[in-house]
Each structure stands twice: as structure tokens, then as C-alpha cells.
Design a protein around this nucleic acid. Structure first.
Lengths: 132, 132
DNA sequence: GTGCTTGCAAACGTTTTGCAGACTC
DNA sequence: GAGTCTGCAAAACGTTTGCAAGCAC
């Protein structure tokens, strides 16, 4: 990934290395604030704005992706582990939704509008069993 | 609707009347800024914070609903005309998606997780035919 | 008159930007 | 050495809040 960066004229800096390590170690999505805390535990001077800039860069490279689970801050994860979510709008309970759940919608959207869905960006809201 | 407000101990004020009129006249979703401009063309002194507070109140009443189409500001519409959206993440093109498109997802989510989806809150991102 | 509602100003949380210096290649 | 990246401070953005005055009931 660092060489991917370099291929674009980018530099492999310490803050980027650490950020990538943190993202690899995260087995869940992380908010920018959480990522910053993790990065700063290893390199205290890395500024929040640097994290934002690096996340943007890595996202353009297609290495990571961000997701909006609700009204709060965005969450980031490796592009390879991106997936869709169901989020209860009442209690906040969250389910990770495999792509197959969206097969029907994907087919219908393509047939009707020529539209290719990527349902991972925004969560699908609704009510969990308990709150419904 | 104004009597609905009163039934809750609320007051039927001029700014609420006008806001409701604007929402009825809007045949599409409107951002808060757009709503404010429309309201202020009839009552210049209505403040943006009043619009926000009234939108919140009307949403609690179940009369209106808000939707996030993308990264920008929320959009509001009458609850009766709420629907799901497909949004091209490249060109911004937008499709209104009828509930039937989500039938398969709704069934799968209920069977697998007991989860009842309401796909109208966040748009489904993806690529339109031209951008795919 | 009670108490909900308003305008205003100020704050909020998240994200973006301008700049001069530091670093990677 | 050229050009990217960084820390810092400040701004931007959409939204929320505290307060005293104003209005609906």
C-alpha cells in the first residue's frame, strides 16, 4: 500500500504507516477520533487534521472506505472489510448485512434504472425485533 | 395538523403555519436553508433556529420526515410523501425508489434478524448507468 | 397569567483549509 | 532540490442551545 502511495507521487510517512497499522488492527469500524487516539498513542504529535488528510488520501487510493452508521461521525475501515449495516433507529443496535441480502434490490435497481447499488455507504435504518 | 399541535399543548403560531404551507407546496424534498428562504419570503423575521425547532417538533408529531441524500444537509418532506432514494455517488443523479424494490431486502432482514427496515432515511449510494 | 415560542447570539461537533516549516524521495 | 506532508490555528459547515422578551391560549 505504501508503494501504491509512492506510485502516485505520494510519500510514505510515519503518520501514514501508523494509520494503516491501526486500520489493519481494527476489527471493526472506527471513528476518526478513535483512530486519532490510537495513532497518537504511538506518535503523540500526529494532528487530527493530518489523520483527516491521510484518510482522504487512502480513500482515493481505494484502500479504505468510510461509512455513515447514523447521525454521528463517519467511520472508517479497510475497503476489503466493508459491508452493509442495519441500524435500529431506536436503540442503536447494529447488524452487519451480507451482500446477499441486497441481491433482490441490486437486481431490481439495475433492471429498472440501470443503477448499480453499493449499499455499504449508508446504513439501512429500521427497528430491531425488540424495538419494533 | 395545527390542532394536532394544540392537542399536545403546542401553539399554532404564524411561523409554523407558514412552514407547513411551504412544505405542502414543495413537491420535492427541501433543505432547511431552502425552507428558511421560502418562509422568510413571507415572514422575513423568522429565524433559522426557529425553523429547526419547528421541523423537530413537526417530525416528533409524525407529520414530516427528514432524509439524508448524501453528505450535505438533511432534506425534509411531508411524511406522506417520504420514499427511498438511489443516489449516484459520482454525478449526483437521483432516483426515487418505490417500496416494492425493497421487498426482498425487507423479507430477508425480517427473517434473518427480526429487523424491520425503513429504507427512506438514508439514500442508497451507487452508480447510475452512465457513471458505472 | 401561564407557559410555550421566538429572535438573537453564541456554542456545538465534525470536518476543511491556509500557511510556514519539515520531511521524503 | 523539488515537491509532498505536517502541525498549528483558524475557519467552515450544519445544527443546537441559553436566554430574555413576546405571544397563544
Amino acid at each position: 500500500m505504501l508503494s501504491l502511495l509512492r506510485a502516485r507521487g505520494g510519500r510514505a510517512t510515519a503518520s501514514r504507516r501508523i494509520l494503516l497499522e491501526v486500520l489493519f488492527d481494527s476489527h471493526d469500524h472506527r471513528s476518526v477520533e478513535e483512530l486519532a487516539a490510537a495513532v497518537q498513542s504511538r506518535a503523540p504529535d500526529v494532528h487530527l487534521s493530518t489523520i483527516y488528510r491521510n484518510l482522504e488520501e487512502l480513500e482515493e487510493l481505494g484502500v479504505i472506505a468510510h461509512t455513515h452508521l447514523g447521525h454521528g461521525p463517519a467511520t472508517y475501515q479497510l475497503a476489503t472489510s466493508a459491508h452493509a449495516h442495519l441500524l435500529c433507529e431506536r436503540c442503536g443496535r447494529r447488524y452487519e448485512a451480507p451482500a446477499e441480502l441486497f441481491a433482490g434490490l441490486a437486481r431490481a435497481a439495475r433492471q429498472r434504472y440501470g443503477f448499480t447499488i453499493d449499499p455499504r455507504h449508508f446504513a439501512i435504518l429500521g427497528r430491531c425485533a425488540e424495538c419494533a
